[in-house]
Amino acid sequence: MQRIWDLFYQQFITYGAYREVLEGLLATVEIAVFGLLIGVVIGTLIAMVKVMPKYKRLPRVLSGICTVYVGFFRGTPMVVQLLIGYFVLLPALKIAADAVTVAIVVFGLNSGAYVSEIMRSGIQSVDPGQLEAGRALGLTFWKSMFSIVIPQSVKNILPTLGNEFIVLIKETSVTSFIAVTDLTKAFRAIGDANYEYIIPYLMLAAVYLILVMLITLGIRIMERRLKRSDRRA
């Protein structure tokens, strides 16, 4: 046991592997955070299209496009999307971008598909009578949405959005497929140096666990705040 620990210590501190770990941690958080931000923007747009009244042709065409989009990104593994993005689209479109950027974009596009469903169901869980009352007063669909329905749906959406963030954090472990130095890759490199994997991998799990627990704590605090606003007099 002492030998294993010494090997890890040597690799981690003396040979400076901690730098890669920190870099990996940064990459992981970066990809998840920016991925979620892009996802929220795309998801909001798709959810808007999905809840729009469908009398006219334009919303129906847009809705069709969104269905295809969501179908593709939910129907294929994230790894495959990363591989296509990095090894197919990047060379084909002759774009110079590093792997982390590609990962952020793919994570954003992918989570956009999931976030759109979160938002749509959050909006649709608001009593339809609220929208009706707004429309009956002569407010437009969008005005009723932004002033009445969406503020009420935030309470349903935020906690689920937190879950999506957790999923993204953990999913970043697949970005090593396109040579991103993320947490998983950094710790695997430590193990590879001496073929001693126990400590690096247990530690890797612990780091993910701590990250997720921090987010969970954040969600819980947020939920409590939102609940308090329920009872306001």
Binding site: D127, G129, Q130, E132, A133, G134, R135, A136, L137, G138, L139, T140, S147, I148, P151, Q152
Partner: peptide
């Protein structure tokens, strides 16, 4: 929307806007 402004409606389930105060409900 223009004509609905002149046709008031009162619902069985009231449908007051839950996220707004009474005053804002009326003035929105």
């Amino acid at each position: 929307n223009v004509h609905r402004q002149k046709i008031g409606m009162v619902f069985q389930q009231f449908n007051l806007f839950n996220n707004l105060t009474v005053l804002r409900n009326i003035t929105l």
